Simulated scan of single mutants.
Amino acid sequence: MKIKKILNNSAVVVKDRDGEKIVMGEGIGFQKRKNDPVNQAKIDKVFVMKDPSEHQKFEEILQLLPEEHIQVAEEIITYAEKEFGVMINEHIHVAFSDHLSFAIERLTNGISIKNALLDQIKILYVKEFEIGLWAKELIKEKLGVEIPEDEVGNIAMHMHTARMNAGNMQETIDITTTIQEITSIIENSLKINIVEDTMSYERLIIHLRFSVKSLLSNEKNHDYDEKMVNMIKENYKEAFACAQEVGHFFEEKYRIKYPEAELMYISMHIQRFYGRVIMS
């Protein structure tokens, strides 16, 4: 295995019988030249990108970003794969390294960006948020930078979208944003404050995640009992009217009709909050 290109002191491009690979390891490129043999004992990671464009982007990232940022990013990715028990999408090596480096640069300069989706992320992506908290400690230890919970939420989003078949980052953001918008509609419509740490709130958020995702994926799974719907309409008038507002918003945003069965379930979740407020 010989070096084809040196990207930095810790990363080189090599070529062998299987084609080009990116190899990482501490000091693996230090004082090396093209065609020098690779020190096998220094290899920590070997990357074989299926997508040539991803390979090229990763080369560029390795040449542009601080080595210590990339090393921390890779350590977080390795930890995430261990926690998930699966290999995650190769795109994360580019997207997450770039994101993390920029975030560290911002925070070092005193610039912190609020994550408007943080409350929803904590509930929807529990495992991913735990990985983000682990990453928070690693970043503090290795780079001396204290990242806020808002950034932990961003890391969680990257970890979620990198899991195989979990969709892409924009889809994850769209779904999470839509859930936030729906909860705002409920609060504004009924003039209530949803307490984020209640079990009822968590149930609502989790139900909305599956509901929104299935509708956007065009999944047909909306069988319901008409008598039950009529009972909800009659006994929980305010909650059902609020759920209808949610349906109108969704239809206007996505041009997809919210099934009455889903509005019934959302009404039942809403009633938990509304009924508690009325009784208090």
Rank of each mutant, 00 (worst) to 15 (best):
A80Q: 09
E81L: 06
E81W: 03
K82T: 09
F84S: 07
G85E: 08
V86I: 10
V94H: 14
F96E: 10
S97W: 04
D98W: 05
H99E: 06
L100I: 06
L100E: 07
S101C: 02
S101L: 01
S101F: 02
A103E: 08
I104N: 02
I104W: 02
R106F: 06
R106E: 07
L107K: 12
T108P: 03
T108G: 07
T108C: 02
G110N: 05
I113C: 00
A116D: 09
A116C: 01
L117Q: 04
D119L: 05
Q120M: 06
I121W: 03
I123Y: 01
I123K: 08
L124P: 07
K127C: 00
F129E: 01
E130T: 07
E130F: 05
I131A: 01
A135L: 05
K136P: 03
K136M: 07
L138G: 01
K140G: 04
E141V: 05
L143I: 14
G144Y: 08
G144A: 12
V145Q: 02
V145H: 07
V145M: 03
E146M: 09
E151M: 11
E151D: 12
E151Y: 04
M157F: 08
M159E: 09
H160Q: 13
H160C: 06
A162P: 05
A162H: 07
M164T: 14
N165A: 10
A166Q: 13
N168F: 12
M169G: 11
Q170V: 13
Q170N: 14
E171M: 02
E171H: 05
E171I: 00
T177K: 15
I179M: 00
I179V: 04
Q180C: 12
I182T: 14
T183K: 15
S184V: 12
I185E: 10
I185D: 12
I185G: 12
I186S: 06
S189P: 02
L190K: 03
L190N: 03
N193M: 08
N193I: 11
N193L: 09
I194L: 15
V195P: 01
V195G: 03
D197S: 13
S200C: 06
S200N: 14
E202M: 06
E202Q: 14
E202A: 15
R203Y: 13
R203A: 14
L204I: 13
I206N: 05
I206Y: 01
H207F: 09
H207M: 02
H207T: 05
L208F: 11
L208K: 13
F210D: 05
S211C: 15
K213G: 00
K213H: 06
S214W: 00
L215S: 09
L216P: 00
S217F: 03
E219Q: 14
E219C: 09
K220G: 03
K220I: 15
N221K: 08
H222P: 00
D223Y: 08
D223V: 10
Y224F: 15
D225N: 15
